[in-house]
Design a protein around this nucleic acid. Structure first.
Lengths: 259, 259
DNA sequence: CGATTGCTTGACTGGGTTCAAGGCCAGTGG
DNA sequence: CCACTGGCCTTGAACCCAGTCAAGCAATCG
């Protein structure tokens, strides 16, 4: 098993050479079809009919990652695209001195790997133990040509991400710490919606990750969480479990229209 | 002619109803073909062969906008897509209290209008007198279905914008004022590259716009410009004309790898 | 001309960062 | 079983970068 204890941030600080590790736990699994995939309905694969699914199954394989393990680094040759099947992964960019900006957290069903010039323009790391469905780029592009509905779906996904990115720019450029955290909690609640306990959201990422996503330090995240807690807007059974006591108050703080 | 003196920011602050104005100066111009279009080579239209161009020409029309005139507002029905032919336009989002975040400046050849749920998720306003090439959404989508190369090009454009958006998130979340401005100048230089005077860049937008793009106030923009000027990195023949005296120093300040 | 608009500059403030310490908990080893 | 350790989170105190408030200047325009 590879040494994966260091985060990419620390690697960068120490000036170690940045080398993409092959997955520590990899289970090529082409045999298993896509029918049984739990993420299928939520992912781009939904664009294909059951009859066409085997075409996709033929080129895919499963890869697993331990928490904090790197999927790929910014600058790596972008020869794969992925669908998240299980777990949570993060996309991020680094500055030379180690400052990090997480550009997104990806959940089951989310798609990643669009790239230009055949280089990834961001790094990807597992937040929790994760399972990704991998497609070699060349074969995937052949699939896009063959199935316009799939390409349409990818374009739709990209448009979605673009809109989310613009929201995030508004957050990073103009919102206060409290507005950022409130917005974040509401967005996470939307993603987890339709679960049994709609108002309890479990955030598997660390305070550092939340800070790197919201453009804040861990201290500010912690203090702001405390403030929301003391005001009665949220409750914290444990540091990763957020119970939203007053959704309206949270929405009012977030600068968003609705929940 | 319509009253267009108020900016959208002021409109919002004053609580006026937000209504999309029809272009003050509109010249439907379907007759003119696309062959003579100066923006053609730089835009998505380049994906179509000369033989297929008339299909596109048949559905397009020209619209002109005066400086500060609104092309569309966030929330408007997204029934058009546009290509910038001349001038500069900005895309932006507003918070309820008037805080604004510009998510992008668009130059000739740039494409805009991708939207979900048939609503624009951002507003668009002319920075300078501009001419846009307009496509009705429904017809444009038929074109996408008919010409896979065009759809591929749109997807490529969206990927590009996504990468740019991620860079901007890094800037807004983690860079200092000086790093933001240096990055901005370098990006603008790249866009204007290959012109006669490569190191003189003309920025038509106001300090307010630059601030709204970089997540800063006009005062901070102004002070930072002054600092770069006094350090000899840049020179300012006039407030909108930036001469880059020391590109390497600027790159070093920006946190970017190259110019 | 005076008035307005856009940019700059100065003085002061404050929200968020930095630096530092302490608490909590799970894992480990004596 | 308990001391020790390290990771993660929280809290406090001091600081600082960018924001706020205010004034002044140059160019444009009615």
């Amino acid at each position: 098993m590879y040494e994966v204890a260091l985060t990419s941030r620390e690697k960068n600080r120490d000036g170690d050479p940045i080398i993409s590790l092959t997955p520590a736990v990899s289970r090529p699994d082409k045999a298993s079809g896509c029918q049984a995939c739990g993420a299928r309905q939520k992912s781009i694969c939904a664009a294909l009919s059951s009859g066409d699914l085997p075409m996709m199954a033929a080129i895919r394989s499963d890869v697993r990652f331990a928490p904090n393990q790197t999927v790929f680094f910014e600058g790596d040759p972008a020869d794969s695209l992925f669908n998240v099947k299980q777990g949570v992964v993060k996309l991020f960019k680094l500055l030379a001195d180690g400052r990090a900006q997480i550009t997104g957290f990806l959940f089951p069903g989310d798609f990643l790997g669009l790239a230009l010039l055949n280089k990834y323009s961001y790094s990807c790391e597992a937040v929790t133990a994760s399972e990704l469905c991998r497609f070699p780029r060349v074969e995937f592009e052949r699939l896009l040509e063959r199935f316009p509905a799939l390409e349409r779906e990818v374009l739709s996904t990209a448009s979605n991400e673009l809109a989310a990115a613009q929201d995030q720019m508004l957050l990073l450029g103009r919102k206060t710490a409290q507005e950022r955290l409130a917005t974040f909690l509401i967005m996470m609640r939307r993603r987890t919606a339709a679960s049994a306990q709609a108002d309890t959201i479990v955030l598997p990422m660390s305070r550092q990750d939340i800070g790197d996503y919201l453009g804040l330090t861990i201290e500010t995240v912690s203090r702001t969480v405390t403030r929301l807690r003391k005001s009665g807007t949220i409750e914290l059974p444990d540091p990763h479990r957020f119970v939203i006591r007053d959704p309206e108050a949270l929405a009012a703080l977030s600068g968003l229209e609705d929940l």
